[in-house]
């Protein structure tokens, strides 16, 4: 084990320099050194998606991404999806569809969904579900989340109604 190294990378559009051990996971640096609570620890081995971030645009598990592998890369966390106070359309769609219960998986699901929408602005329902298969949700909110991603893609819900609508 070597001592701390200084790393330069871009996080949520900002160039940052952090001191970290080579074997420290990116998740640790994001949460503790950069104060970003959005990526959550779920399993530590990249199997649940709760810690997903965009690494050069692709969803990746920050929990088992060591710092030495992210030198010079661009990292976007769920906090970086919003444009200032204005939520990313898929974040807003999650509120419109009330697509969460405990919400612990939501950060990672939003990151996967944002990557999908960037690559495929008009995905089918099957594409949405398939693109979220690396994210686990234990509360059983998957259908609402899929509906929310489709809503974000089209600008409206699949049936034009949401709990947020007047009824």
């Amino acid at each position: 084990m070597s001592g701390p190294t200084t790393y330069s990378l871009t996080v949520n559009g900002r160039a940052v320099e952090v001191q970290a051990d080579d074997d420290a996971p990116l998740l640790h640096v994001l949460r503790h050194d950069l104060g970003l609570a959005g990526p959550r620890f779920g399993c530590g081995v990249g199997l649940c998606g709760a810690c997903f971030v965009l690494l050069d645009g692709s969803p990746a598990p920050s929990c088992d991404t060591p710092m030495w592998s992210v030198i010079g890369k661009t990292v976007v966390t769920v906090e970086g999806l919003a444009d200032g106070d204005s939520l990313h359309p898929v974040q807003q769609a999650f509120l419109d569809e009330q697509a969460a219960q405990c919400g612990f998986c939501v950060s990672g699901v939003l990151v996967s969904a944002a990557a999908l929408l960037a690559a495929e602005p008009r995905p089918t329902e099957e594409q949405v579900a398939g693109s979220l298969d690396r994210n686990l949700c234990r509360c059983g909110v998957q259908r609402r989340m899929v509906a929310a991603v489709l809503r974000a893609a089209t600008g409206a819900g699949p049936d034009g109604h949401s709990p947020g609508d007047e009824s």
Binding site: F41, T77, G103
Partner: peptide
């Protein structure tokens, strides 16, 4: 009625909310 959940804005924005935060 369908009041929007009070805790979801924090969770969707990735704000600290959980004990581990």
């Amino acid at each position: 009625s369908d009041l929007l959940r009070l805790d979801l804005p924090d969770k969707v924005a990735g704000r600290p909310r959980y004990l581990s935060d």
